[in-house]
Design a protein around this nucleic acid. Sequence first.
DNA 1: AATTTCCCCAACCGCGAAGTT
DNA 2: TAACTTCGCGGTTGGGGAAAT
Length: 341
Amino acid sequence: MGRSPCCDKNGLKKGPWTPEEDHKLIDYIQKHGYGNWRTLPKNAGLQRCGKSCRLRWTNYLRPDIKRGKFSFEEEEIIIQLHSMLGNKWSVIAARLPGRTDNEIKNYWNTHIRKRLLRMGIDPVTHSPRLDLLNLSSILSSSLYNQSQINISRLLGVNSLVNPELLKLATSFMSSRRQNQNQNFLLTNVDENQLCSSHVQNQYQQLMQSSHDLPTQVQQLPACSSLNTSPCSITFSNEAELMNMDQFPSNFSDFSDWQGDALPSNLTEDYVPVPPNYDYYGFDQHSQTVMDPSLSDTSNFQSNNSNPSFGFTASNEDERDSYCSNLLKFEIPDLFDVNDFM
DNA sequence: AATTTCCCCAACCGCGAAGTT
DNA sequence: TAACTTCGCGGTTGGGGAAAT
């Protein structure tokens, strides 16, 4: 069955909408509603295809659209929901009144995704970027021996045949030679081990609060003080959060089906991350704490002393700072993480 | 002040699902 | 049940403004 075009492309206008076109569309919908998008532009006197009209209405002209910057509460909700749902922008948008899927998608791609990458977090899996952490570990141990290193062979052994990793390795090696700091990474590991018990306590607190996302979102302290906050939406149970016809009933076990939804090209850029850990480092199946000190690949560290999400900040840097404190993965400064972004 | 580069976001495209005939 | 239509979603693009040089 061939796919039919949504409309006759000939003679139809594309590109930015003019105020006149907006006016026509608003007027028509206010008078007649938007029953059939295919016939709407003709009836409204617009030289546009129905699809373009629907998009313009739903993403821009709808009266309940909320414009302006995303609040921190909204951002938190987006991150939380994305960690569970992946790129289900329409579902995420349904939880943020006044925000469109397109707006959320754009905000994710231009702000949140970059911030997570800066922090060494894979924005797809919400887990530490193990490609960076693995490489750090590999190079550290290899450099410690100060033998001649064949990076390509080294990476090949670990199935990390990725030009970007080679680039990073080269960059790292170059910087390493300049600094001649042989103990840098080992020192980092030691520091992480020292704080592991502290981190474990924090994980246990976080684990409890993150185990039930709907409850956690509902209880955001910052939200309760804002009458008009988008956080006034509440999730009294999992069924309310999820559209049950779209998502499996064993929602708490989402990592399994989320894995299925991962892009097929993920492995082109990333070493697979164990799916059972969210980016707090929790094993979502067994509910045991993932101890960073026990992981040979993880320089994972949490500096968050307050797992609640009540905070205020006024700019991007402060959001960065907040997120960095919440989730801290120690990528050595010598890595030029920007090369990966 | 002029030019280049970077970044954001509105809009488009293609696909699959759902609905209709 | 097949053929076709319509809708909605997610990925991607490119124009325009901001920032950097």
